[in-house]
């Protein structure tokens, strides 16, 4: 495969897409939102438990391509313990990175694996979908945890 492809499907992305982390419903979530990419049918639901403006727990469910699954998995693994302000800042940087290739700062850890996405304009949406779902979940006022 070409360098571009190997940039897109880095080992860490393939790994997270095959065995996604935090791939479950969070029973005591107080924020939740769905994301949907009608173009390819990717669907993701993001669950978050936020206390004192800090992300305590994060998980997701859904179906989608390797990029969107890995993006959700790495996102949930990267943001635990971050404040809402830090999450916003990482989202902004991540957004710039997947559209231009400019990497997020080192605190972003594995997020940098998605820098190669910018060479595949059709796939930017896949990489950003779980983040949009998360941001819209966090924007909603917290709901009491449901267990239904």
């Amino acid at each position: 495969m070409t360098d571009d492809v190997n940039d897109l499907y880095q080992e860490v992305i393939l790994d997270h897409s095959r065995t996604p982390r935090n791939f479950k419903k969070l029973e005591n979530a107080n924020h939740m939102a769905d994301g949907h990419n009608p173009l390819c049918g990717d669907r993701v639901t993001v669950f978050a438990r936020v206390e004192n403006d800090v992300i305590q727990e994060l998980s997701f469910q859904g179906s989608g391509c390797a990029i969107s699954k890995a993006s959700a998995s790495i996102m949930t693994a990267s943001l635990k313990g971050k404040t809402l302000a830090e999450v916003q800042s990482l989202f902004d940087q991540y957004h710039v990175m997947v559209t231009t290739g400019t990497p997020v700062d080192a605190t972003g850890g594995k997020l940098i694996a998605f820098a190669g996405v910018h060479k595949f304009p059709a796939r930017v949406k896949c990489a950003i979908l779980p983040w949009h779902a998360l941001m819209s979940a966090l924007k909603k006022s917290p709901t009491p945890a449901t267990t239904e």
């Binding site: 070409t2 390819c40 989608g64 990029i67 796939r123």
Partner: peptide, 19 residues
């Protein structure tokens, strides 16, 4: 996933549709 399939096929010059 079809989306990954189509991206990779394109890299080999094969134009498919996925979705």
């Amino acid at each position: 996933h079809a989306h990954d399939m189509v991206t990779l096929a394109d890299q080999k010059g094969v134009a498919l549709r996925g979705g």
